[in-house]
């Protein structure tokens, strides 16, 4: 349950950027969260509401862009979709999959005033 720490890190990134860019109100926040990043979206929304209270991002809309999990199957040497880490390769059934995408956690964009 580290969504609270993640929400606090998001707020800190927003506040750091506010100091350099000189905005005083954040209306919307776009996050990019990978399917395999281990983040519970609803819990993150809840924590975001809590930590942004009385900050420049109070009442900001949180938009979460979920990026798909991707992997490289070492057996059949092809790129495959990965929805969970314990799933086998959909082509050959091997578990030798190197995750190549879907682990990102990024603040992408803000709408500010």
């Amino acid at each position: 349950m580290h969504e609270m720490s993640i929400a606090e890190s998001v707020l800190q990134i927003i506040e750091d950027k506010a100091r350099t860019d000189g905005y005083t109100k954040v209306k919307a926040v776009w996050l990019e969260i990978g399917q395999l990043a281990g983040v519970e979206k609803e819990s993150l929304r809840f924590c975001f509401d809590v930590v942004t209270r009385d900050s420049i991002a109070q009442d900001a809309r949180l938009e979460i862009i979920e990026t798909a999990g991707q992997g490289w199957c070492l057996e059949c040497a092809c790129s495959v979709a990965v929805t969970a880490r314990y799933e086998p390769c959909p082509n050959c059934g091997s578990f030798q999959i190197e995750v190549t995408g879907g682990e990102e956690m990024r603040v992408k964009e803000l709408e500010v005033e």
Binding site: I6, S9, V10, Q12, I13, I14, K17, D21, Y23, K27, L31, E104, M105, R106, V107, K108, E109, L110, E111, V112, E113
Partner: peptide, 14 residues
């Protein structure tokens, strides 16, 4: 009135 700010920063960067 509002504008978009590109951030592109990893949440756990700190």
């Amino acid at each position: 009135q509002s504008r978009m700010v590109k951030i592109e920063r990893d949440i756990l960067a700190k």
